[in-house]
């Protein structure tokens, strides 16, 4: 790893840690408790950024899958697959933290409304993406097949986003865009989104590096055989 990359990694780590500390301070010390739903509403400040990162991750997978099919460069595939993996982890967190928040507010853990169901479908699509990669075997073919899944699967992302406007759902509408948040709440949410976005960038760089190292091991093994 060259000096420029090491410096970039340290800068990103410093920024990420700083933002995350600021985010935690704001969530637990700065932002006022919601009058209607109480302290449990604070799940919102991590639930929404985690969902944002999941959408961003699948968008990056979509872009890099197109780029891979065009350029056939395995480094592009490494970024696409790293981003998909992180997207799956964050979608899992959305699907877990959502019900934890829903139980005290709605009185139920889960309901098959449009937002929740399409989110679950999104998770299944990208689990399929990861399965295609692990079962296909040969790296070039696995990259091609998964790139197709990464492109087609992305169709579900705007659907998930628009469900709350297209159908009547139990899940609340996007109050951020409707001015439903007070200024401290909005600032806290923005800091949390920034913190999670930096975390996503760090994780994607590290995971893509891991995948490039796996390719290098395969290449060296082939040279020996």
């Amino acid at each position: 790893m060259n000096k420029k990359n090491i410096l970039r990694d340290y800068l990103l780590a410093g920024l990420g840690i700083g933002l995350m500390i600021a985010a935690l301070y704001m969530v637990f010390m700065y932002v006022p408790t919601d009058k209607h739903t109480g302290i449990v509403q604070r799940i919102f400040y991590f639930h929404v950024p985690v969902a944002w990162v999941a959408f961003l991750a699948f968008f990056i997978t979509f872009i890099y899958s197109i780029l891979y099919l065009w350029k056939r460069n395995m480094k592009l595939d490494a970024i696409a697959s790293a981003s998909a993996e992180i997207g799956v982890i964050f979608t899992t967190l959305v699907l877990i933290t959502g019900p934890i928040w829903a139980k005290p507010i709605w009185g139920i853990w889960w309901t098959w409304d449009a937002r929740l169901t399409t989110s679950l479908v999104l998770w299944v699509i990208y689990i399929a993406y990861l399965l295609v990669r692990s079962f296909t075997g040969e790296p070039g073919r696995s990259a091609r097949y998964s790139a197709v899944v990464g492109i087609i699967g992305f169709i579900d992302v705007p659907i998930v986003f628009l469900t709350v406007n297209l159908w009547r759902t139990q899940h609340p509408t996007a109050i951020i865009f409707e001015g439903g948040l007070t200024t401290p709440m909005l600032i806290t949410l923005m800091v949390c989104i920034a913190a999670f976005t930096v975390l996503y960038i760090i994780l994607t760089i590290q995971d893509a590096r891991l995948k490039n190292m796996e390719s290098e091991v395969r290449r060296l093994n082939n040279r020996l055989v």
Binding site: H47, L93, W101, L199
Partner: peptide, 20 residues
């Protein structure tokens, strides 16, 4: 009230991130 839910949500997120 409901502090347990808040604790569970944040703990899960951090365990998942650090684990990864």
């Amino acid at each position: 009230e409901n502090l347990g839910y808040l604790f569970a949500a944040y703990t899960l997120i951090w365990v998942a991130i650090f684990g990864y």
